[in-house]
Amino acid sequence: MMIEYENYVAATSVAEATKTLAEGNATVVAGGTDLMVQTAASGRGANTTLLNIRRISDLRGVALDGGRVTIGALTTITDLLTDGVVADAASILADTANRFASNQIRNMATVGGNICNASPAGDMIIPLLVLDADVELSAWRDGAVTTRAVALNEFFTGPGKCVKTEDELLTSISFNRPAEGFVGQFGKTGPRPALEISMVSVGVGGIVDNGGLTNARVVYGAVAPTPIRAAKTEAALEGLSLNEASIQSVLDVADSEVNPISDVRASDWYRRHLVRVMTQEVLQNVANG
């Protein structure tokens, strides 16, 4: 099914883009790697206007300012792989980018698009949740661009759904530069090493302290309607000295906290199993330094 758009707008500024969104009935395209497929398969994006934001050059790039890292929404996955700030301040993002789809898709796909697609299995969301990121939403209201910040942890409301309103554009993602001693680990699995939608993905982060983690973050993808922070698992992990037995106790908590479904990609049993073994892997890596 082809979609017949009536209008095409290639905005060059956030003001222009948000004005177009304010007029309503617009579908945003950035990298197009999800939209093109969804449009062909399901007719998603059946709006009358196609809004291309790729020419807004301000929205691409990573900056470190006053201890806060800001990533423009149009930063590509390949950018994250090669960016110096990311490598230095938040290498978990580069590690995740390295597992993301394929080279061709990474070159086109944007961080903002990966978030707005709101897939429970969206890869880049996992490390950004580990990093306590906020997203910046911009809208054209009362004759000017206004912005609001939303914690990424409160951004998603269901598969393909988020709190962003129709007139808002996700313009950037930001997080505090992790403190000294921070480690972050990302894991995903599927039968293929590339071009693979995660059956389960896991992100763990925290400050290494005394053979354990403080300020622990545990995030899972594809085990619930949205990517989730596993609060109980985080609490169980907080300050815990990691060894074989204590890791097993954390896994039991994680198992109680996830609620995966069975679908064409995996059974709920296998997803639970993956939550255990992938969390175990990540925690062992932390324990082993």
Binding site: A41, R192, P193, A194
Partner: peptide
Amino acid sequence: PNFRDYKVMTAPE
């Protein structure tokens, strides 16, 4: 009925 969920081998493996 799609390449996402019908897993053909790709170059990396």
